[in-house]
Computed example of a mutant assay.
Amino acid sequence: MADLGIETTQNVRINFQLASIGERISAILLDFLFFLGVYMLLLLVIALVGDGAVWILFLLVPLLFYSLLFEVFMNGQTPGKKIMKIKVATVDGSAPNFLNYLIRWMFRLVDISLTYGVCGILCIVMGQKGQRLGDILAKTTVIRTKRKVLFEDTILVDIPENYQQVFPESRNINEKDLPLFKKVIAQIESLEDPVEKLQFGLRARKNVMEKLEIQTEIKPLEFFKILITDYNYIHRNR
């Protein structure tokens, strides 16, 4: 499955790997099994209590809103998506909101239910962003997630003894910028083509330099590592 390039608020392009059709179908099947298990358990309880006809009809309602509710309250994931390590994301890099989730949920009827998934699969295969019809209209897609990274793992680094802050402008770094810097570093290190590595690094460095009003010729990889170290130095020496 292809990658999805997302422009962050720092104007840095980060690539995320799109979820495959197999992963998305597996997530749907796992969700079905999960819901079926819970549903059967509730029916068993009602059968033991007796007089459950009204309750059976009432329990059909969560089935309709299953994916919507989970995606809203689990940050773009259902239990099946969480197991498969995939999630809903917007194609512009912003955080999905309720309207995004609602639109893609409404079109499940066309993408999955009425067409037995054929419409959704065709749209995903023919498109370039892994989107079914509901995703196209909601401006979302489904991407793979990595293991959860602890906040400390994201921003904390060892500071060399007698370290001196390199950029005075580092005081303008926002805490939310640190995960982005880490992603840029990881992407630079992962690129094998020297030309592509250099071009990506220079673009990323240029955008961040403009925002922080920094002037430097330090190589991109070292530049972002220095920013992270500067940030830790400033905040540990307050």
Score class of each variant (00 low, 15 high):
T154L: 14
R171Q: 07
N162S: 10
R147Q: 14
L133R: 02
Q128F: 10
V149D: 12
Y163T: 05
V166E: 05
E175S: 14
D135A: 03
F151I: 12
T140P: 07
E152G: 03
T140S: 00
A138W: 00
I173L: 11
R147H: 06
T140D: 02
T140N: 03
Q164D: 10
V149R: 15
E175V: 15
K148V: 09
R147M: 06
E175K: 15
E175W: 14
P160F: 06
L137G: 03
R171W: 04
N172K: 14
P160L: 13
G130P: 00
P160V: 11
E175I: 09
R144P: 01
T154P: 00
L156M: 13
K148T: 14
E161A: 12
L150N: 14
D177V: 02
E161T: 06
I136Y: 04
I136H: 10
E152L: 07
K139N: 15
V149E: 15
Q164S: 07
A138D: 02
V166W: 00
D135L: 09
K139F: 08
P168C: 08
I173Y: 03
D177T: 07
D135M: 11
K139G: 04
F167L: 03
S170G: 04
T145H: 09
V166T: 10
E169L: 10
L137Y: 01
K129S: 07
I159Q: 05
T140L: 04
V157K: 05
K146F: 08
S170N: 08
V157H: 05
F167S: 01
N174Q: 15
G134F: 07
N172H: 10
L137K: 07
E152Q: 14
N162F: 15
N162M: 11
T154Y: 06
L133A: 06
E169K: 00
L133E: 02
N174I: 13
L137I: 13
D158I: 12
Q165Y: 01
N174A: 13
N174T: 05
L150S: 14
G134I: 04
N172P: 00
K139E: 13
K146P: 12
R171T: 08
Q128I: 06
R132F: 08
L150K: 15
L156W: 08
N162Y: 11
I159E: 09
L137E: 11
L137D: 07
D158T: 14
D177G: 05
N162R: 08
F151C: 05
N162V: 10
N172V: 03
I155Y: 11
R147N: 15
N162I: 03
D177A: 07
A138F: 01
E175N: 11
T141D: 03
L156I: 11
E152Y: 12
L137N: 00
G130L: 07
R147P: 02
S170D: 05
Y163P: 04
K139L: 08
I155C: 11
S170W: 04
G134V: 02
R132I: 06
V157M: 01
E161D: 10
V166I: 01
T140Y: 02
I155D: 03
N162D: 14
L156S: 04
I136P: 01
V142T: 11
E169G: 01
I136T: 13
K129H: 12
